[in-house]
Design a protein around this nucleic acid. Sequence first.
DNA 1: CGCGATATTGACTGACCAGTCAATCTATTC
DNA 2: GAATAGATTGACTGGTCAGTCAATATCGCG
Lengths: 215, 215
Amino acid sequence: MSASRPPTARSKVAPEKRRLILDAAVRVFARQGFHACRVSDIADEAGVAYGLVYHYFASKDEILDTLFLERWQVMLQLIREVDDDTIPVREKLLAIASFIIDSYRHDPDLMKVIIVEVTRAANSFGNTHIATIREAYELIGGMITKAQQRGVFKDEIDARFAAMAFYGAIEQLLTGWIFGLLPQDEDYFERAKWLVVETVCGGLEADQAPRASIG
Amino acid sequence: MSASRPPTARSKVAPEKRRLILDAAVRVFARQGFHACRVSDIADEAGVAYGLVYHYFASKDEILDTLFLERWQVMLQLIREVDDDTIPVREKLLAIASFIIDSYRHDPDLMKVIIVEVTRAANSFGNTHIATIREAYELIGGMITKAQQRGVFKDEIDARFAAMAFYGAIEQLLTGWIFGLLPQDEDYFERAKWLVVETVCGGLEADQAPRASIG
DNA sequence: CGCGATATTGACTGACCAGTCAATCTATTC
DNA sequence: GAATAGATTGACTGGTCAGTCAATATCGCG
């Protein structure tokens, strides 16, 4: 239930099946939703026996936890690296937006699952992973605070708020794609990266600050 | 229970129980989530017998549908009225942001349920109500398009995109409150209305356009 | 080969819960 | 005050499904 064995299996062949199950779960969760699907659906999709799912994972929940954490850790890593860089805020935010949008472009099902089932699920997994999710918001908030201290961004807008607005705009963009409300061609993806940064930064920048100013 | 019943017609007493059940459902859905709660939890919370829930509603789903539609129709009405007004875009968007934020302030549980269980639930109710949800995005998108035609907003930013960014920023703001990531005092609520409009409009406005220009 | 360890199988179970329904209660009407 | 119609009750059912487990297959190695 709670304390289970570490994900590291001894065999060399084993992890392949584990991956197979995770990848199948992404497709099934994206198609049917976490609650609506059965564990047997995942097993069928992966082409393995029902019981094997429980050989690699302690529960249905643990599969979703694994998917979320795998991806979110990569994103946190990216955000931390960007945070340490000495580039303008605009470029930092562009790097983050690009990462998330490229993640969606590369694996829309996975991003759909993460957003729909975890990030925005205040009563189930969202609440479980709130600390992990929060870290991303706080790192972004920190970047904005620094930009404010340097006079690049206006002081009047609360940094925590700005971080939420920025992240919220991106997530809603993905939601628009997920629901089929926005075009999903390559051009739009690329353009969206620029648009989201332009929109939010435009509203945050101090009046006198030039757009290419160093953050 | 027996003595002091006013001589009102049955047709007037009955809907009170219906309302009682709806209000109880809001609390239960907000606390436990739609999937995690039982219909008996709703009945208990409302202080009525289990079967009565099915006297007023055909299914558990119908309860959530009713809650969502009740509120969303009011919001669509507000957006349509605002759309018809001849006020600057900024004020239009402020009216919408104010309505949503006030809705949360007035009944946080209800807004939590609508956002978490419907608006963002791509696999269940979200998909069912997508047309209704979409209408809000399109009305907002239309306002932005008009502002672009008048030169108040830049043409470079796709209106549909801008509508998503605007709505997404607001929803993420509510999410921040729902998850306890942002302060929930009255001042912050009021300030947030201004902030969200300031942030998004700041990024959308044409460089030469004065802030108070008529949209 | 033979032995222990790990991988894989799928039938089974126990709990859970949405929805049903027959019985009972209350109010209104004539 | 009896008849009727709607309101209210809660025990019960039927189906679903997460998780278990004992059996079987395969691998690694001396």
